[in-house]
Write a protein that binds this DNA or RNA. Sequence first.
DNA 1: ATGAAAGCGCTAACAG
DNA 2: CTGTTAGCGCTTTCAT
Lengths: 338, 338
Amino acid sequence: MKKKDITITEIASLSGVNISTVSRAINHPEMVAEKTRQKVMYYVRKYDYKPNLFAQGLQTKKSRIVALVVPNFSNLSFANISKGVQERLNLSDYSIVIFNSHEDELLERRICKEIAKLHIDGVIFASGSSLIPPIDLLPEDTAKLFIDRDGSDINVDSLIFDFAGGLDKAVKHLKVRNHRKIALIAGDISSYTGQEKVLTFKKALQKHELPLHPNCIVDTLWSAKEGWNATEKLLSMEEAPTAIIAATDTLALGAIGAAASREYKIPEEISIVGFNNEPGSECFNPPLTTMKFSDYGIGNDAATLILKRIYQPDSELITTKYSLEIIERNTVGNARNY
Amino acid sequence: MKKKDITITEIASLSGVNISTVSRAINHPEMVAEKTRQKVMYYVRKYDYKPNLFAQGLQTKKSRIVALVVPNFSNLSFANISKGVQERLNLSDYSIVIFNSHEDELLERRICKEIAKLHIDGVIFASGSSLIPPIDLLPEDTAKLFIDRDGSDINVDSLIFDFAGGLDKAVKHLKVRNHRKIALIAGDISSYTGQEKVLTFKKALQKHELPLHPNCIVDTLWSAKEGWNATEKLLSMEEAPTAIIAATDTLALGAIGAAASREYKIPEEISIVGFNNEPGSECFNPPLTTMKFSDYGIGNDAATLILKRIYQPDSELITTKYSLEIIERNTVGNARNY
DNA sequence: ATGAAAGCGCTAACAG
DNA sequence: CTGTTAGCGCTTTCAT
């Protein structure tokens, strides 16, 4: 298959028209006589003409590529999000490329530079890492969107989860089952968003008239191992909590493992609730009770929104909040009465 | 930051030389007088000049981008592989973009077309899905590489795992512990590679003088849920196997969940071995005994190899096999004696 | 060692 | 409605 790609010039001479007419027939069909258009498109299809992205980009400064930047693959809701983005984008003949920053600040900066270099039209940052993405490294006219991080103060569209609402539901769910000492494995709280999570948790406890015990909010990164370690810490306290809320299912996976390894019966002796309903959490041992959002839907919305921002850079700033619903499985039980 | 990128022309006039000299100073330093070069590079650095990829690509037909195509994010070894690829590539000033085919044949084809359109220089296909990647959709001069799939027959470099060797070790490990009835959750066996896996398993059993029981090889996809379902099937047999080998840790996660939900004690009543040592499997309940390869190392090698192929398209075809080592954790025990 | 000039494939004025 | 033309920013002959 050495046959090199067919160019607009060749299509033009085949159709017996000028190259600019071919260009118009493709990009602005309404500017071309129906008959000419037909003729041109016939050859376009026959030879499967594809515009050369380099040439097109050189001219238009657009690549028709959107990037999705994720901090890791461990938070498996990213898989569904990416699928949602993918399918929506394909509908509009855009491509999606994924970058994994591996929760590394330097790498994230590097990625932004690459994105700039590739003249990518829009970037979706999926949260997880502690930092505000270095969007200053991106051209101003690159569309930007945050998932799970509020960018309204820096003029970036955002799709955020109602973590507060979810936490409230989770706490309530636990309180009804007699839990009085609830701990939070918070993920990364070094950031502003992280701090907000802590605040949110405190408020939820307060609202439900539950005490906040010292050391019951533990700061971690995002791997299962981190969840394990946090749980070790929690369960070795003099009076261990009877329930643990983990900020992600992956964290909860580690929490379950650690609790079980200490011979805690789940959910009889310790209750655990996760967040995100990541693929696989229905298969944990035991299956995880978790807070679910529509990951695929969010991906879809994200793609729709970024396209809108690409086409209409000055349209109104959007911040959408997604609610979380509890999925009851087998990691929550009743706390023993005192 | 509206300031548009600085171009080679501007650098040229700043340095008082012709643009072609600037181009040479950057791309072929040896062709330029040391002094001129210094002068040019001074301005290059001062204004952080970056060549325009579109213009460069239009000329050279190269993008300095390598794509990594994965079938899912569930097999978490992809995370480490991607990191290995990333870091090696960055060293050579190449970018990596990731595509997720979501185990969808159509999507995979679409992705290949996008890769062609983007004029990506090299593509690394990480296995998992059942099919041979549609590399015929890629230009002939795009470097290609398979991970975990043998492409030697179609002239593609491959990095493959010694699955046979790993399986042999796993079977032996189990046999020593008195297991006589061992089942395999095989992942997808509809493909050639899959069939080979089945054969391999049969051989391993034979070698260790173990019987192959009917229905003890189960064909699945790659999600945890699939592992769960397979295990349900296995454990509901009249005489259930005492040990299960799962082709990936994710599959094993489901296997553990299903076994536990049927009140099997792990590892006392059922032993489970995974493959790949995916991040998180050390935190399963109980922590998973699994077969490990150097995922980061493979990613690194993959990047090195694809770069070589890009620079020297006609260099000798390479097929490297990576061995697997067992990591003993807590999911394997002794089978009861009969 | 350096400059001049052609051209990669495409889009978008500008004419007609 | 269509053709002509001028670049987009860069690399690479071909001269000098």
